[in-house]
């Protein structure tokens, strides 16, 4: 089945039965796995990019949730806590398997526009709406660009822009401040814009 990214609000949420989960109740866990697997799978899959690996990470996530449930402090939503486990495992797996060299923080920095006396050093040129519309592989382009981001930026783009979790939730999931989520999301989008830029600019007429 194909699941489109939905915001958490659109999905009917049954609050997990925390007491039953704390008691180690199998039915309660089955309900939890049923309810949270699709959303969690989408996030984990988008981070690791491999179905088998994502499936294994889901197994491990729910097992760790079972084993560590006594450490859950009711300061965040239970699902936020659960997702944090899955996201951590996914990021760990990505770090281990990193096939291609991705960008690092200094690359992201380089992709930010530079200013002199508050003005753009290089004026941005408009994108060609036709190229934007016609580029049939634009999602593939973008997918590769997101894949190239440093993994914390990548996770934030996936969680905020694609899966549409709130800044506060993402901050809790990644154990960073809301300010850091906002700044990195902005810098990631700017870097992505820069990576897409050459593909969408008006093509110059070559003088012949």
């Amino acid at each position: 089945m194909i699941e489109k990214a939905k915001s958490p609000i659109e999905e009917s949420i049954v609050e997990p039965d925390l007491d039953a989960l704390l008691a180690g109740d199998e039915k309660a866990f089955e309900l939890l796995v049923n309810q949270e697997s699709p959303r969690l799978f989408r996030i984990v899959f988008r981070i690791v990019g491999d179905e088998e690996e994502a499936k294994n990470i889901l197994q491990e996530t729910f097992l760790q949730a079972f084993q560590r449930i006594q450490t859950f402090r009711r300061e965040s939503k239970f699902t936020t806590w659960l997702y944090a486990i899955g996201i951590n495992l996914a990021r760990g797996s990505l770090r281990k398997s990193k096939r291609m060299t991705s960008l690092d923080d200094s690359d992201v920095e380089r992709l930010q526009p530079s200013f002199s006396k508050g003005m753009f050093v290089e004026s941005p040129e408009s994108w060609d709406p036709l190229r934007l519309a016609e580029q049939s592989d634009r999602h593939e382009l973008l997918h590769r660009a997101i894949d190239n981001l440093p993994e914390d930026y990548k996770a934030i783009v996936i969680l905020r822009d694609i899966e549409e979790h709130s800044t506060e939730e993402v901050a809790k999931m990644l154990d960073i401040s809301g300010g850091a989520v906002r700044v990195r999301l902005h810098r990631a989008r700017v870097a992505l814009r820069a990576m897409l830029n050459p593909h969408f600019q008006y093509q110059r007429q070559t003088a012949e």
Binding site: F41, R138, L142, D161, I162, R189, F200
Partner: peptide, 16 residues
């Protein structure tokens, strides 16, 4: 436009 492209994204197939 970049944000819109990100949001259009690619769909993820959930294994049965």
């Amino acid at each position: 436009a970049t944000i819109n492209l990100i949001k259009e994204g690619q769909e993820v197939k959930i294994p049965d």
